[in-house]
């Protein structure tokens, strides 16, 4: 899952111009803007067949690829 998330982010949102590590701060670093984040979240919902309720759409769950992976795994299990 981690590789898929990174690949999607790198190709679809960052257009292959930046490399992302699992622990990179996606939100504070300026890597992704708010529109990009919305696109990423829509992809996660579709790809992993989950609906993310509003109360889960918070910084703690989306700060890094690692945090997203942990959140999605927690939801799927």
């Amino acid at each position: 899952m981690r590789e898929e998330l990174i690949a999607y982010l790198e190709t679809e949102i960052l257009h292959g111009e930046e490399e992302v590590l699992a622990e990179d701060d996606l939100l504070g670093s300026g890597l992704v803007d708010s529109m990009g984040m919305m696109k990423f979240i829509a992809h996660i919902e579709e790809e992993y067949e989950i609906t993310i309720p509003p109360q889960d759409l918070v910084i703690e769950n989306f700060m890094t690829i690692a945090a997203i992976e942990e959140y999605v795994k927690g939801r799927s299990s």
Binding site: D25, L27, G28, G30, D33, S34, P54, V58, I59
Partner: peptide
């Protein structure tokens, strides 16, 4: 408002 908060509207 931090950069992270401005990108996650619910936060």
């Amino acid at each position: 408002c931090s950069d992270a908060e401005t990108k996650i509207p619910n936060s």
